[in-house]
Design a protein around this nucleic acid. Structure first.
Length: 427
RNA sequence: GGGGGGGUUCCAGAGCGGUCAAAUGGGACGGACUGUAAAUCCGUUACUUCGGUUUCGAAGGUUCGAAUCCUUCCCCCCCCA
């Protein structure tokens, strides 16, 4: 398998430095991608980079996943229009651990010569003093060169300015590449297309400081057909951490992609072969409403990111919530089955006694539970016909609910709109 | 250090003494339509016991009345040195 060719037909390739392809075809090569610990979990936006590493390894090369314990302290200005807040060391350490844990899932760390490797740039930066850094690294690049970078230029032209800290980011990342090149024989750095400038600073540093050669590959930034940002939903980013985004929500995110996005994403986010994908596309075009592509896409990514079991639960949940989700169906389930269906969906507890006395819809949904942040909003939404309890529209904000409404004497199912479910447990 | 421009509701951005809970656009949410899609259309978008109550960087002040005027403070940006 030819790595670059693979990226190319999948539509992932954005830019590649001349000579990179020859180098990769010549021998097993080591390449890395950096992930900055800006949060305690990766999100779907990172999956492109993860897939790139997976392809890299499948092509017989050695992938290195770098977690940016040091770069995370600085803050990458690429693609950012404003200065970012610095994270405390404590939070960063926590984030680094979380990211390492997640990344381990996707790559094979024990397969001989091309086993994956995990590194943290804090390890080589923690004892690097400021003076040493500006002498050994800063001296090799001119400010003129650094200012010509897009990430810098945009901020200088904009009206928010840029701190010296963020200006220095490219040097820090550039040194990472130099270090890995020198110490780990890492020849290639990959990343999203917004990383081109930072990556090239690294190859430049390697050239000037050690007269060495290194290579760069960037991947396409994932765009949605409608131009909106990829990876965001109503409830924010789609995380890989099941505690932050349940496997059900994760599955739903992919299932809900538009037809045109699904066609490009199935190439990027699954390992299916070209004939397989073309076959699926044909089937899809014949009966688009079956959403064959979306299902194939969602299933494969959910398994890779979470697990087979998680997918089964997600499927079961989807089946209930969007399929034959009648009240009778719910009543036919056992308590544990109900809990399973609602696993990963928001749940609230209320006291049985309070319910026995009767509670109005607004109190129930805004005060006793946090389905709505305020009573006013609950009232507006109910009046607008957007709220159901136990699959039945709530006609009036002051409608009373009591123990008699409980399913299995224990549950109430609240719905905000069509897709947002909440389980209320009386106990 | 000097000069200039700013900080408005989720965001952008109007308002510049009363008619302002604050235009407009975007986003978000809900409804109709549908394929759990896209597009389109409609509604909502500070809190409320629906009497009111708290908002326009912060604190004071002027006024019958302030987001709008004054004072001090905090923060941001640009330019010059």
């Amino acid at each position: 398998m030819n790595f670059v060719e693979e990226l190319r037909w999948r539509g992932m390739l954005h830019d590649i430095m001349p000579g990179t392809e020859d180098e990769l075809n010549k021998q097993m090569t080591s390449g890395y991608i950096g992930f900055d610990p800006t949060a305690d979990s990766l999100h779907v936006g990172h999956l492109t980079q993860i897939m790139t590493l997976i392809h890299f390894q499948r092509a017989g090369h050695r992938p290195v996943a770098l977690v940016g314990g040091a770069t995370g302290m600085v803050g990458d200005p690429s693609g950012k229009s404003a200065e970012r807040n610095l994270l405390s060391e404590e939070i960063l350490n926590h984030n680094v651990k979380c990211l390492e844990h997640q990344l381990k899932k996707f790559l094979d760390f024990n397969c001989g010569a091309n086993s994956a490797e995990m590194v943290n740039n804090y390890d080589w930066f923690k004892n690097f003093t400021f003076l040493d850094f500006i002498r050994d690294v800063g001296k090799h690049l001119t400010v003129n060169y650094m200012m010509a970078k897009d990430s810098v230029k945009k901020r200088l032209e904009g009206d928010t300015g840029m701190s010296f800290t963020e200006f220095s980011y490219q040097l820090v990342q550039g040194y990472d590449f130099y270090y890995l090149w020198k110490e780990r024989n890492c020849q290639v750095q990959m990343g999203g297309s917004d990383q081109w400038g930072n990556i090239v600073t690294g190859t430049e540093l390697i050239r000037r400081k050690a007269a060495g050669t290194a290579y760069a590959i960037t991947t396409q930034l994932i765009k949605k057909a409608d131009g909106t940002k990829f990876g965001k939903t109503e409830s924010g980013a789609v995380w890989l951490d099941p505690a932050k985004t349940s496997p059900y929500k994760f599955y739903q995110f992919w299932l809900n992609t538009t037809d045109s996005d699904a066609k490009s994403w199935i190439r990027i986010f699954t390992l299916k072969s070209q004939p397989e994908i073309e076959q699926l596309e044909n089937e899809h075009d014949e009966a688009p409403h079956l959403r064959i592509l979306q299902k194939a896409l969602a299933e494969e990514i959910t398994i890779r990111t979470h697990s087979d079991d998680a997918l089964q639960t997600a499927l079961k949940t989807s089946e209930f919530l969007f399929g034959n989700g009648s009240l009778e169906f719910l009543q036919s389930l056992s308590e544990t089955e109900i809990m399973e269906v609602f696993e990963g969906l928001p749940q609230f507890k209320i006291s049985k006694d309070e319910l026995a006395a009767g509670i109005t819809a607004t109190d129930l949904l805004a005060e006793k539970t946090a389905v709505f942040p305020s009573k006013g909003e609950a009232r507006k939404m109910i009046t607008g016909g957007g709220v159901s309890v136990n699959k039945e529209k709530v006609p009036d904000p002051v409608q009373l609910f009591s123990s008699a409404n409980l399913i299995k004497g224990k549950f109430l199912v609240a719905q905000k709109g069509k897709k947002n479910y909440f389980l209320i447990i009386a106990g």
